[in-house]
């Protein structure tokens, strides 16, 4: 055997060994993933192109940012901005809280009150923590709705004021989206080029997934583990609100956590609403509003909101989409 053939044999063996060892090396070597329990859900950050940013430090900073927003917006944490808002008529809040309230008021007005940040008392009335199955009386619901509505709070010069003593602010329908945005900004500012922030299925995408867009599946509202289709997206937020996340069933009726602010009862027009928008905070609030409004009015709201698209699965199980979503939709 010539020296050349000997060299080729060695090279072949080395290559085979490398291929075998690389295949053993784990899932996807370029993917960095970390999870934390924050804002009462699992937050997962996936980085597929760090762009030279130090890992895991930058991801830990993104988690810290979410935790900071949670501390500001928690309904029950003593000293949080929301707790202080609910304890006094006028409250100076952090710029981040003011930004959330400002956007929330915009969506509230645009949706005719379908998105409402003043349902704190109503949400505390309905047992959605899985511990019991009890439907409140109509009288209790009526009482809990007192002091709610899109005009019940105002924001001026970084100060939130409650119009009524009964008003209880709850930013649960928008704060998680805002926290996702802050994590996204932290990653982006550090130089990360491709990543996804996933808080319990609410997503913000940074760049694409390699050369391709991210492929985002939409949960089927009635088939656990099933999907209704997927979207090919990059550099956007995707948030879904559905009646299957937190609910209880009593006498064959499903009672879930997305309430119609007009009645105080779980909204009945939709099974789920998915919104694609430039920010997760906007997508979060719009998804709740679109869910409450139902397919016709909900799609109309999304169509008139700049850069927002979405799909609603109606109570009839049919899928309704905005026109702009057609190209990204794959069933």
């Amino acid at each position: 055997m010539s020296t050349r053939n000997t060299f080729l044999l060695f090279a072949l063996l080395v290559a085979l060994a490398i291929v075998g060892l690389r295949s053993l090396g784990g899932d996807t070597p370029k993917e960095f993933r970390r999870s934390r329990i924050l804002m009462d859900t699992v937050v997962e950050i996936t980085v597929t192109d760090a762009g030279g940013a130090p890992l895991p430090q930058v991801v830990d900073r993104a988690f810290d940012e979410i935790a900071r927003i949670e501390r500001l917006t928690s309904l029950f944490r003593e000293g949080s901005d929301v707790a202080r808002i609910n304890a006094q008529r006028e409250t100076k809040v952090a710029p981040e809280t003011a930004a959330i309230v400002s956007l929330g008021l915009e969506v509230s007005r645009a949706s005719g009150g379908a998105f409402d940040m003043t349902l704190g008392r109503l949400k505390m009335l309905w047992p959605m923590d899985g511990t019991q199955k009890a439907v409140p009386s109509q009288e209790a619901i009526r009482t809990a709705l007192a002091g709610s509505g899109m005009d019940a709070i105002a924001l001026r010069n970084g100060q939130v004021s409650r119009r009524f003593a009964e008003t209880m602010v709850d930013l649960g329908g928008i704060a998680k989206g805002y926290a996702i945005d802050r994590a996204y900004e932290t990653l982006k500012a550090a130089g990360v080029r491709q990543a996804a922030v996933n808080a319990g299925g609410d997503l913000r995408l940074l760049g694409g997934h390699g050369e391709k867009p991210w492929r985002i599946a939409i949960q089927h509202p009635r088939k656990p583990g099933g999907i209704v289709g997927s979207l090919a997206l990059r550099d956007v937020a995707v948030v879904t609100s559905g009646d299957y996340e937190r609910f209880f069933e009593l006498d064959g009726v499903r009672y879930h956590h997305l309430f119609d602010p007009r009645t105080g009862w779980p909204a009945r027009a939709s099974q789920s609403a998915t919104v694609v928008a430039p920010s997760a905070a906007l997508a979060d609030a719009l998804a709740t509003a679109a869910f409450v409004l139902g397919p016709q009015k909900g799609i109309a709201l999304l169509e008139k909101t700049p850069d927002a698209e979405g799909l609603i699965i109606g109570a009839d199980g049919n899928v309704y989409r905005t026109a702009g979503l057609e190209t990204a939709w794959e069933q």
């Binding site: 996804a196 299925g201 609410d202 991210w214």
Partner: peptide, 21 residues
């Protein structure tokens, strides 16, 4: 404070990267 996750390559995810729910 426990998270149980199923990990795997994207190619194992039956056609999608992330689930919005």
């Amino acid at each position: 404070r426990l998270i149980v996750r199923v990990e795997g390559a994207y190619s194992e995810r039956k056609g999608y990267d992330l689930l919005s729910r």
